[in-house]
Design a protein around this nucleic acid. Sequence first.
DNA 1: CTTGTTGTAACTGATTTGGTTACATCGCTG
DNA 2: CAGCGATGTAACCAAATCAGTTACAACAAG
Lengths: 146, 146
Amino acid sequence: MKISSRFTVAVHILALLSIENEAHCTSEWIAGSVNTNPVVVRRVIGQLKKAELVQVRPGTGGAFLTKDIKEITLLDIYRAVDVVEEGELFQMHEHPNPQCPVGANIQAVLEVILRRAQAAMEHVLKEVRLYDVVHILAEKIESSRS
Amino acid sequence: MKISSRFTVAVHILALLSIENEAHCTSEWIAGSVNTNPVVVRRVIGQLKKAELVQVRPGTGGAFLTKDIKEITLLDIYRAVDVVEEGELFQMHEHPNPQCPVGANIQAVLEVILRRAQAAMEHVLKEVRLYDVVHILAEKIESSRS
DNA sequence: CTTGTTGTAACTGATTTGGTTACATCGCTG
DNA sequence: CAGCGATGTAACCAAATCAGTTACAACAAG
């Protein structure tokens, strides 16, 4: 089971908006970079708009960032695209037998541990800013140009 | 997107085998505690067998642990049930445009970061032994008995 | 030989995902 | 003011995955 590519696509889009900030970034153009369908891009951008990370010029089109890339963490993006419910990365089996001592208590025990595991993962995302991604990306682009 | 309940079910099963180690633990009996179908239990036990965490008495049936519960970590169980491929918790979108500088490089940049995030999560699982789960569980059972 | 259990295959319905078509809406521009 | 290009959204689809279920051959013990 994998976390939906919506998340990595969203990071791709935002990095693109940052690096190509002069361009007219239409959904079709972005879709060309991601290699997907423009509607998929618009759906993701819709979620990023709700999270107030981007705006779209009405009528003429084209998306752009609304925040400093130092102010956006990967966790913000991850939350924006709603790819994992808060505290529910791990699925529990519903209704274990309350008559069984193990069944009655296992969920509570696991919940604490698994939330901690999920939090550790999300903590890493929180520590990485879009700025860092763009920065590393720009370095790679620069060095591959030579 | 959630990680399959196979994992939490597997932990439930192993904790049960440890706590009720005198009982004749058939798949049907275990299914009664988990509240699922015996075949689901057998499937999970099949994976736990491959990982050499349990054995099943042939013919007469009944599963039992083959290791000390201090020697089994939640990560071992998580790997046994094969619920997330190694290093692939996050799905990337295939074939971003190599002509686009961002498309050509974004994957490599993200991979490093996302592997780190996944590793952080799995590290927490590695630090928790089945022993710890059983221990907390036994405490809860004891206190709820009063 | 009968009984109880396992291992496995096969099928199901539900859910999610990503892709696609279609279309109303809205600014810009000629 | 009419046409063009872009957006937002609904609707539908195929593929994948899950968990549940039925069915059955194999096996050990009594």
